[in-house]
């Protein structure tokens, strides 16, 4: 472990452990990819501190174990950009704006309770669907799958989700089918699949056309038509899963499960 006083340089893309303090480069433009572990002056420029990092007196404190990532600032800004730790987790923690797949567990008056896999159930108002009014209620039953996004998600309040976007249109959100299969995978795999130009999705698309819904809470929904015989069902499901497993070595450092 590097003690304070040693000046080790951590390249973005290296493994960091909880307890490491990262100091930001004194000259924001030069060495934007390198962070120093050691005493340094105050950082300049607007910096975004992403998941796995917390601001502390000396710089950024790493709280999760993983690879350090950096995104340079969008415009020709004077330093900053975003730093975060790419870590692996199975349990989801609600984040505002994340699209997720939830399971409706209860109806309580005007809101539905939705299980999103976090520490608390999220609430979904019946008016948060496209075209829903007080007279025209959406047909949501207990056990249905809904695809929506969080509008309120912080550590102090119960998470709230909606199935419409800011302009009031569904945009793919809402109740997603009554048939199909729900897979639970790790959060890292979902992020890999949602990355632009994901190899798995492209290769899978070349094999046969498919449509899946990915929730940031580690859930994948695969709409399959009702299969007549059990053997066909097993073949179809194991096919998709085997494809995921077979292609996982190409994922690199992010683990599959």
């Amino acid at each position: 472990m590097a003690a304070s006083g040693l000046s080790a340089e951590v390249d973005v893309g290296q493994v960091v452990l909880p307890g490491d303090v990262l100091l930001l480069p004194a000259a924001p433009n030069a060495d934007g990819e390198r962070l120093r572990l050691g005493p340094s002056s105050a950082p300049r420029g607007r910096l975004l501190c992403g998941p796995g990092l917390r601001r502390c007196a000396a710089g950024l404190l790493v709280t999760k174990c993983g690879l350090l990532r950096h995104r340079p600032p969008a415009g020709a800004g004077t330093g900053g950009g975003a730093y975060w730790v790419d870590s692996q987790q199975k349990r989801y923690v609600p984040v505002k704006g994340d699209p997720i797949i939830g399971i409706v567990t209860a109806k309580a008056g005007d809101i539905f309770k939705v299980d999103v896999g976090g520490s608390e159930q999220a609430s979904l108002s019946y008016l948060a669907f496209e075209g829903a009014t007080k007279r025209n209620r959406p047909n949501v039953q207990v056990g249905d799958l809904v695809y929506g996004q969080f509008i309120v998600a912080n550590k102090d309040m119960e998470p709230e989700m909606v199935c419409i976007d800011s302009s009031g249109r569904a945009n793919g959100m809402g109740i997603i089918g009554h048939e199909g299969l729900l897979f639970k995978v790790s959060l890292g795999l979902i992020r890999k699949l949602l990355a632009p130009n994901c190899e798995i999705i492209q290769e899978l698309g070349q094999l046969y056309p498919f449509e899946i819904v990915l929730g940031m809470n580690g859930r994948i929904w695969d709409p399959r038509e009702v299969i007549s015989t059990p053997q066909d069902w097993i073949h179809q499901q194991s096919g998709l899963l085997h494809l995921f497993v077979a292609l996982s070595p190409n994922l690199g450092t992010g683990a599959f499960l």
């Binding site: 909880p18 307890g19 796995g52 999760k64 987790q89 199975k90």
Partner: peptide, 11 residues
């Protein structure tokens, strides 16, 4: 705790 991805102050 590290494997679960829980935020830690230090190891």
């Amino acid at each position: 705790l590290l494997d679960a991805g829980l935020p830690l102050r230090s190891l």
